[in-house]
Amino acid sequence: MPNRGPAVPDEEAASVTLPTRWTVFLRTFLPWQAWRFLRINLKMLGMVRRHH
């Protein structure tokens, strides 16, 4: 049986910022994500082209 050791310090976890249900919903909402797919790709391409 593994030594369970000291409690993992999780006090910080109680005070973190959590997403709203709407934010979580948008993360996998297909129409919104299709739009984000285009936007993020353009942002990344801009970053790459800036160096080239």
């Binding site: 993992v8 310090p9 999780d10 910080e12 976890a13 973190v16 910022t17 959590l18 997403p19 979580v24």
Partner: peptide, 16 residues
């Protein structure tokens, strides 16, 4: 750090 802590807390991951 805020985003990472948020992601971990949301998924029940604790950290050291």
């Amino acid at each position: 750090s805020i985003f990472t802590a948020s992601l971990f807390a949301e998924r029940g991951i604790s950290w050291i």
